[in-house]
Write a protein that binds this DNA or RNA. Sequence first.
RNA 1: GCGCCUGUAGCUCAGUCGGAUAGAGCACCAGAUUCCUAAUCUGGGGGUCGCAGGUUCGAAUCCUGCCGGGCGCGCCA
Length: 582
Amino acid sequence: MKHLVAELVANALATLPELAEAAGDLAIDSTMERTRDPSHGDFASNIAMRLAKPARRSPRDIAASIVEALADSPSVDKVEIAGPGFINFYLSPAAFHAEIESTLAQEDAYGRQPTKEGPKILLEFVSANPTGPLHVGHGRGAAFGDTVGNLLEAAGYPVHREYYVNDAGRQMDILGSSVWLRWLGDQGLEVDFPKGGYRGDYIRDIARDIDMSGLSVPDAAAVNDGLPANGDDNKDEYVDALTARAKSLHGEHGFDRVRQQALESIRDEIKEDLAEFGVRFDTWYSEKSLTTNNLIDAAIDVLKERGVLYEKDGATWFPSTDYGDDKDRVVIRDNGVKTYFASDIAYHYDKRERGYDLLIDVLGADHHGYVARVRAGLEAMGYAGEDLEVEFIQFVTLYRGGQQMQMSTRSGEFDTLRQLRAEVGNDAARFYYVMRSNDQHLDFDLDIATSQSNDNPVYYIQYAHARVASVFRQLGEKSLAWDQANGLANLGLLVEPQEKALMTMLSRYPEIVELAANNRAPQTLVHYLRDLANDFHTYYNAHAFIVDDEALRDARLFLISATRIVVANGLGILGVSAPDKM
RNA sequence: GCGCCUGUAGCUCAGUCGGAUAGAGCACCAGAUUCCUAAUCUGGGGGUCGCAGGUUCGAAUCCUGCCGGGCGCGCCA
């Protein structure tokens, strides 16, 4: 609808050479906005003010020229110049009728744009280390990433969703050792559990279920003799020594079996968790595969060929300060081991090499320090740093009874995504996670999320959907039928203020989807749906839909059908269900 | 010290590329149901948009400085 009005202005401008020149490549769409105050019409353009300086004419004078050049349109009733030079457009009822007609015609597809050629987007999110279950913080990244993916797809962008599995490096050794030690414990061996190990109960569960056939149980002395102290100041040393011990007792291959089973067990739990949460991925990209496919070496070779790497203190460095980073970064350590940074730039290089134009990473806010160096890596390898866009997710704090809940693993209070979903349900969890801007800290109030009352915005929106369904059930019980064509023909009967407000709100939906997608801002859609539900509930309370007058009844049912579709489509993007009954 | 995020009603937060009189929910107060689900609706009070400058037709929004809160600054992953 916005494009429709913008096009009128664009066409008018085309007939005014000097103004068109002043406008240059200004997007007319960007001058057009919904009015906040109905007395200003439906849309307002500030183009006259924007052109005042380049055209060296007064805004109101420019506005007058444009209005004069506007072609007549059945969609526009009236155009006015107001204030400092706003051009206000009053749309005709026919324009709104056409919009809801198209809502019913397109149903699920309403608000979705046809798939564009590009840019091809690779959306990476969650990517939690497979060393433990997803916690409530990861849940926010999952809900946000999935919703942004849905929004981008609805806006027509080809999106590929990827989870980067950190299945390589020392943390996998520590995971393996932790499981191994719990297994030894189950076999009756006493070993001092490392302070730097993974202590959660899930490690014990994995140890209990693990297939260790063919591996012999060592005796306690063979495990414990000659280990360093298990103190706070050398916990790394102690864990590493245990890993080495496991490898020497069971062989590389034997330890790898433990490590691999632990990894797969946790990774499968994560996959299951996300699937149940309605979060889907197209690929699970293994960090280890970077090594097996020689992609890290390949990336380092590219940097070497470009002559950007240098040697210092026995290590190989990448001069990321040349690209705006705080300090240079090590790529290969003095012991020959490649750093995580090397994997990271290889991974992002590979994303671009796979043909994705725009890389969106959804990261926890504590990772913001990595962006500069990864961008630097991309630039050094010949891609633009702006190809990488990062959306940071701020922390989540749970509240119950007005009290902040402790969320450390050790405290034993609940902190996993699974527990949260069990308590508040998927719908409320997904809704609350994206209700606030991602760069705002989130206070997640469990009391409100679980309350079945007017406090709860999830139910408020779902209730609008259920009410429409209920109206149609009532219609059936009264042995009445809805004549859709008759409704369409009689939309002109919808003249109540609540009906006009609802139609105006409905017509905004496609613009909201596009705006939320472009800004990676799910909360924009959340707030819109809340406002839409409000307009619907107001209408519901003010007027009966199932009235004796058939023409009016069919028209009203047409309008609330459109409402149901928009609510369902919007909730669908949020990953929240749209129930017919509550 | 440097970097990223943040500061808007009592509380939790929206606020589009700068736009017209700064919005919503909760909380508080007063009302609405012979009628399609009251998980609803209507009305009301409540603001130095952290502070100070600057940019301009116009600033919560952009720039600079200061103050407060969160996070990060490893040859860990």
